[in-house]
Each structure stands twice: as structure tokens, then as C-alpha cells.
Simulated scan of single mutants.
Amino acid sequence: MGLYVETHIRGGLDELWAHTQDPALHRRWDFRFSEIDLLPGAEGEPRRFRYATRVLPFLTVAGTGVSAGEKTRPDGTRTSALRFSSGHPLSLIAEGSGYWRYVPDGDGVRFLTGYDYRPRWGAFGGLADRLVLRPLMGWATAWSFDRLRLWVERGVTPERALANWCAELAVRSLVVAAACTGLGLGSPLRLLGPFAAAMAYLCPLLLTLAISVALFKAPLAATPAARRCLRTPPTTRVRAPRLLAALERLS
């Protein structure tokens, strides 16, 4: 699989399964989707669904998919697999597939995903995917996983988590902007008289420190962050579940 994200969530397996398998709950925490709706289907068959992503306030890209899950496995884990595609001409993603694994681990669950997709638009699409979309999708998946973790572990709703992230991003941006402005202003130091020489050295250091803190300080505990998730597999060889292969044959 091309993209991999893993997190550890201190919560029950049934609770995590519900938060990820119920479309109404899934779309609340997953930043990649603005809509997820089940389509009519027979009982016991793989679930078919429609998804949509709001790219711009006036532009929504939609697609369809099929998913299946194994809620009971001999080793105590659970697995969910899906295939998806979009016929929208503005969707860079043509089709793809992936899986979720739920692995009980101590006081919680290792929740991980692996997925990949085929871009459209030929060579230009491949370049745009490699430079822009794929890094963005990896970040959005990890950020969403951490938002899910905050919901299950701490009771921070996805809406509150997003508000926390926006507020913290705004504060960090203001600090960086103010510090950069301060670095560009040398003339006010003349008003300090004899202290001007000392401040000429001290101010740039303090402003540079402020910029470093704003850019690199760890996010607050109730703010989701992609950096908290594992972005590479713990082993060099990762196998997709058999369920995904069965789903591919079905579709």
C-alpha cells in the first residue's frame, strides 16, 4: 500500500468499531470526507456507499465505493476493507483500495490503515499527486486519526477538536507574523538610547525564539496533530488482508 498511518487509542474495541463503521460518526472525524452515505443493498452483502469531499465552498467531488468487515477473527483482531472510485472529471483520484486493522494492544487498540489509489490526468496527474495530493492525503489521514483518538480517549468531539486546531493555528500564525515584523523593524531601537546596542542583539534572538516555539512546539493535548501518528510501517513488509483481495474479486 502506498500510504500507511497508525495510532494507538486507549478505548474499547467495540467503541472504536462503532466510531469508524457508522457513516454518521465516520464523517464527523475524518477530515477527508464531508459526506458518507450508505446505498441500498441486500443484508449480508458488502456495503456500498457514496462519499463526497468539499474541495472548495462551491465545489464538491463525489465517488462511490464498496466495503466489507470482519468483526470476529480467531486472533481477536478486526479488519475492514474497501474499494472506491470517482468519475468526477475534477477528481485527481480515479480509483483505489485500502483497509483498516483493529489490533487489541494492552489498554487500547492499535488502529492502522494502508491504502493506495491511481491518479488520473496522465503524467501531469502523476506529478501533481506525488508533489501535492499524496503528502496532503497522508497528513489528512494522520490528523483525522488523532482527532478520532481525542474523541474516544478524552471525549473531545470532532467539532471541538477542529475549533481547537483552528484557534491554535491562528495564535501560532499571529506570533510568527508579529515576530517577523519585529525582525524587520530596526529603527525603533534608537529610542532606547544607551540600551540600543544591547537590544540590537537581544531582540532578534527573542523574536527568533518566538518563531521557533510557534512553529515547532508540540500541540496542546486537546488539539489534533498528524505528528502523533506513525506514518511508516513498523516492519518493512506489510500484507494487505485477504478480505481486500476478496473484495477486489467481487468488484
Score class of each variant (00 low, 15 high):
Tyr117Thr: 04
Leu220Val: 09
His19Asn: 12
Thr223Tyr: 04
Trp151Pro: 02
Arg10Asp: 11
Ile36Cys: 08
Leu162His: 10
Leu192Asn: 07
Glu45Met: 08
Glu15Leu: 00
Trp143Ser: 09
Ala221Pro: 08
Arg32His: 09
Ser251Val: 13
Trp121Phe: 15
Leu16Gln: 05
Trp29Cys: 07
Leu59Ala: 04
Arg239Ile: 03
Gly41Tyr: 07
Phe195Ser: 12
Gly76Ser: 08
Val109Thr: 00
Cys229Arg: 00
Ala198Arg: 14
Pro204Thr: 05
Phe216Arg: 13
Arg242Tyr: 01
Asp129Ala: 15
Val109Gln: 04
Ser212Phe: 13
Phe216Asp: 08
Trp139Pro: 06
Leu174Arg: 13
Gln21His: 15
Pro204Trp: 06
Val109Tyr: 01
Phe58Cys: 02
Pro233Asp: 01
Pro135Tyr: 02
Glu70Asp: 12
His26Thr: 09
Leu174Met: 11
Lys217Pro: 08
Ala178Pro: 04
Arg118Phe: 08
Asp116Cys: 03
Leu127His: 00
Ala222Glu: 14
Leu39Cys: 09
Leu205Ile: 12
Phe124Glu: 02
Thr236Gly: 15
Asp146His: 09
Arg130Pro: 03
Gly63Ser: 03
Leu169Tyr: 11
Asp37His: 10
His26Leu: 15
Tyr4Lys: 03
Thr235Phe: 06
His8Phe: 12
Thr235Gly: 11
Pro89Ile: 09
Ala240Asn: 05
Ala245Thr: 14
Leu247His: 04
Ala140Pro: 01
Thr236Pro: 10
Val176Ile: 15
Ala225Gly: 11
Tyr115Ser: 05
Leu183Cys: 01
Pro57Gln: 02
Leu150Phe: 03
Val55Leu: 14
Ala52Asn: 03
Val238Asp: 05
Ala226Ser: 15
Trp143Ile: 08
Ala81Leu: 01
Ser173Pro: 04
Tyr4Leu: 01
Pro234Arg: 12
Glu6Trp: 02
Phe49His: 02
Leu25Gly: 07
Val171Asn: 07
Glu43Pro: 05
Leu131Ile: 14
Ile93Met: 12
Ala179His: 03
Pro233Tyr: 01
Glu45Thr: 13
Ala200Arg: 15
Val61Phe: 06
Gly69Asp: 11
Leu59Val: 10
Ser85Glu: 15
Ala140Gln: 12
Tyr4Trp: 07
Leu148Gln: 00
Pro219His: 08
Leu192Val: 11
Pro204Arg: 08
Arg54Glu: 14
Phe84Trp: 09
Arg101Tyr: 01
Trp121Gln: 05
Asp37Thr: 13
Ala128Thr: 03
Cys166Ser: 12
Pro224Ile: 03
Ala62Thr: 15
Arg47His: 11
Ile9Trp: 05
Glu15Thr: 10
Pro119Cys: 00
Leu243Arg: 02
Ser86Asp: 06
Arg50Phe: 01
Ala179Ser: 14
Ala214Met: 06
Leu82Ile: 10
Arg110Thr: 10
Phe111Pro: 04
Glu95Ile: 02
His26Arg: 11
Arg50Gln: 04
Ala179Thr: 09
